[in-house]
Amino acid sequence: MTAYTSNEQKDTRSGFGAALLQLGRINPDVVALCADLKGSLKMDAFAKEFPDRFFQAGIAEANMIGVAAGLAIGGKIPFTGTFANFSTARVYDQIRQSVAYSNTNVKICASHAGITLGEDGATHQSMEDIGLMKMLPNLTVINPCDYNQTYKATLAIADFKGPVYLRFGRPKVPNFMPIDQPFEIGKAILLSPGSDVSIIATGHMVWLALEACSILNEQGISAEVINIHTIKPLDTEAVLQSVKKTGCVVTAEEHLMNGGLGDSIAQLLSLQLPAPLEMVAVDDKFGESATPEELMVKYGLDVPHIVAAVQKAISRKR
C-alpha cells in the first residue's frame, strides 16, 4: 500500500515559479527569459525582484532560445519560460543547434504541457514534446509529478551543468511528494513496492498511478509504483530491477505513445528484458477543447485505464 497522501491541490508551474525566485536569491548567475507568458509561467516574482536578470523576449521564441544560449556561453544560467509547444516544436532547430549540439547550459522550462492545458485545445496542447526533446543528444529531459517535485527539480537543474528540458503543467493537482524527498536527476523514485506488476509513471500520471495501486490492492494485485521524473537519462537499473521482480509493466504518461516514457521503456525492455508491456498514453492523436478532467477520461489517461492496463499486462504474463 502506498504511504503517500495529499491534503492540497497545487499546480506544478507554481512550484517552478517559487523555485526560480529562490534560485534568484541564492545564485547570482541565474537569469530568466520569457516569451510574453510570465504570469502563466509564474515568473512574476523573479521578474519583480530581479529586473536586471529577467529578459522579456516578447512573442519571439526562436530569438529567446538563441539569447539564452548566448547568456549561457557568457557563464550565466538562463531559464527560459513559455508553453511546452512553443518551448519545443516552435524552436526545434534553435534548440538543436544553439543549445543541444553546442551543449550550452540552457534550462528550457515548459509549462502547460500535455492535454491538461484543457480548453485552449490542440494548438496549445503539447503531447509530443518529450519525444522531440529526448531525441536530441546532450539534452536531459525531466517531467516532475507535483508542486514539490517541480520545486526540487528546478533547484536541481540549476546545479547541473548542461542543457535541460523541464516539463510541467497548468492544473492544480495533488501535492504528495514530501518536500524533503531528495531529488536526484536520473534517479527513479520507488513510491510503493509490489510484486505483480510495475507501474512506471511520470508527471501528472504519477498520482493516478498511486490511486490505481490502491484499487488494485483491494483486488489482490500487488503493484509496484515507480516515479520516473527523468525521462532521459533513464534510470535503467531501477526499471530492470523492478521488472525482474514483477515480470510485467504498465507505463503512464500525459503524452503520445510515440516518443514518450513508454517508448523509452519499451526500447529498454525489448533490448534487455522482454516482458509484457502496456502503455497508458495517447495513441497518435491531437487533443481538443474541454476541461482537463474530461480530456483525461476521453483520452484514456485516468485511473480506470491504468487499472485495465495492469490487468491486461498481468494476463499476458500467463
Binding site: 529578459f55 526562436a62 539569447v67 544560449a69 548566448g70 547568456l71 534553435q94 544553439s98 553546442s102
Partner: peptide, 20 residues
C-alpha cells in the same frame, strides 16, 4: 563558442553573450 550553419541564429546568441 557556438555551432552555426543553420542560418539566422547567431545574432540572438551574440545578443545573449552581450547581455552576459
Amino acid at each position: 563558442r557556438v555551432a552555426s550553419g543553420s542560418l539566422g541564429q547567431g545574432l540572438s546568441v551574440a545578443i545573449g553573450a552581450a547581455l552576459s
